[in-house]
Design a protein around this nucleic acid. Structure first.
Length: 467
DNA sequence: ATACCTTCTGTAACTTCACA
DNA sequence: TGTGAAGTTACAGAAGGTAT
């Protein structure tokens, strides 16, 4: 077994083979090079909370584990982050940090889903939870059995946490690069749901219901529980000599989880939010809208040059290749009324493309600041016209307001349910009990519980008193 | 970009009531 | 006094919105 690479002047007061194994395990979990793994220890008093030992950049674990090794290997109550963190702008790129923010806002990579099985308890510890009296060996065997039966995906890593058991399922992104997925807030939501599904599937093994968040820290491999028991990780190598990895979609599909499609959030990057991705998304939409507008013959003399330039800018910002920008611009020019160019002094299309391609960042930023409402006025796109054409973003102010104020899915569902309820109770006397009404609503396809029916009835009666 | 707030709904435990 | 049905309440969690 190779010894870990450590600084020559670092005193070696820890077990080298153990360090080697710990480094390998940490590297297996923390695969995104620019994300950080944080190490924490409990203060003298248990109530003292967690104290930061430091954080290591994932691709520097090999060279910098020595910075924490002495305080981790064989030591009691030391923890590390399951997932990878962004260290803040100041620390970004440094191999080792003394301090790093630890909350879900700083997460960068979702390395692994996990469950924490609170087994290994005694009858005296947990008299009401017989499941928790199982030993760690029994728990691991039962998890393995469930995986073999296909109830849960095969775990990537089992770990004896000193008393109970951790089980990990390594994650990979949807791109197939093998890196873990990013940790945007929507991904963190999915992550929690998947961890919850694992808990549900392992309900007979006393899963800790609180341990499902992405910001969690768990005991470091080869450290010790405060009871003196070692923390040992075991990787499950399958047929190809690697532990299994999963995309979040695969895990969601395994558990039959349906992704909720709520009303899109304003700040989602692909929906015109801030940042580079937001610009790309917005300009894609703008380009699509301009294509629709051109198809309807609304780009007329006087605004052709302006709109063609706008269109080229959109395509360019949306990362289209220069050749594609030129081709698309030619297609759009043919749809103008009359087709562009039509006069001898009309700027050639190639010049429009070049002007856009040669803009510097600031000029491009300024060029992108055109107002959708103004364009609608210029091209005579009315509220109804914009709606009928199915435009997404180049729409008059009035339509934007209307869309902003449109009811959410939940509001629409509620209105529908209340209407049904008002009609139903007016035809029934006496009023059926809440639970019966809820059952009737469910049969009518209006899924809800009796508490919801109760609230609806309360509001309906308040409305009738007012009117 | 983020934390914080509001709204909506479900879960679960509780209270109230009628009736034997 | 026990039982079950019905109503009430607290709280959690997710979605969505907003202020900074």
């Amino acid at each position: 077994m190779r010894a870990p690479q450590i600084d020559a002047d670092t005193p070696k007061h820890y077990d080298a083979p153990l360090a080697r194994e710990t480094i390998d395990l940490l590297k297996l979990i923390h695969r995104r090079n620019d994300a950080y793994v944080g190490f924490y220890e409990l203060g003298e008093q248990r109530s003292g909370g967690f104290k930061m030992m430091g954080a290591i950049k994932a691709d520097c674990i090999e060279s910098h584990f020595s910075q924490v090794a002495e305080r981790v290997l064989g030591k009691k109550d030391v923890y590390s982050t399951v997932n990878g963190y962004w260290p803040g702008a100041k620390g970004n790129g440094l191999p080792f940090l003394k301090w790093m923010g630890k909350n879900c806002g700083f997460l960068r990579a979702l390395n692994a889903c996990y469950v924490d099985l609170d087994v290994g308890r005694t009858m005296e510890d947990k008299p009401d939870f017989p499941d928790s009296w199982k030993t760690w060996r029994e728990a691991m065997a039962e998890v393995g059995q469930l995986a073999d039966e296909g109830e849960i995906p095969q775990p990537s890593i089992f770990a004896r946490s000193g008393r109970g058991v951790y089980v990990f399922w390594l994650l990979e992104n949807e791109k197939g690069t093998g890196d873990p997925p990013p940790a945007f807030s929507r991904d963190q939501r999915r992550y929690k749901q998947i961890n919850k599904a694992f808990q549900k599937a392992l309900l007979s093994l006393a899963p800790d219901p609180a341990a499902k968040d992405a910001a969690r820290i768990l005991r470091v491999p080869n450290s010790e529980h405060r009871n003196g028991q070692p923390v040992r990780f075991v990787v499950q190598y399958l047929g190809d000599g690697k532990p299994p990895t999963y995309t979040m979609t695969e895990l969601e599909e395994h558990f039959g989880m349906q992704r909720k499609q709520g009303k899109a959030r304003r700040n989602q990057p692909d929906n015109g939010g801030r940042g580079k991705a937001g610009h790309i998304g917005l300009n894609r939409k703008r380009a699509t809208d301009l294509e629709i507008i051109a198809k309807h013959g609304l780009i007329k003399k006087g605004f052709r040059h302006l709109m063609l330039r706008n269109y080229a800018t959109c395509l360019f910002v949306a990362n289209e290749a220069p050749k594609e920008v030129t081709n698309s611009l030619k297609r759009m020019a043919r749809k103008c009324i009359p087709p562009y160019p039509s006069e001898p002094n009309d700027t050639p299309l190639s010049e429009i493309v070049n002007a856009v391609l040669n803009q510097n960042g600031e000029e491009r930023y300024e060029a992108g600041k055109w107002k959708h409402g103004t364009v609608c006025l210029q091209l005579a796109i009315s509220h109804t016209k914009a709606r009928d054409m199915g435009l997404q973003t180049i729409i008059p102010e009035s339509l934007r307001k209307e869309r902003e104020n449109a009811p959410t899915e939940a509001q629409e569902r509620r209105e529908c349910r209340r209407k049904w309820l008002a009609e139903t109770i007016s035809s029934l006397s006496p009023k059926p009990p809440l639970r019966v009404l809820a059952e009737m609503a469910n049969q009518a396809g209006l899924t809800c519980t009796y508490q919801t029916i109760r609230r609806d009835l309360k509001l309906l009666s308040a409305d009738s008193v007012q009117s």
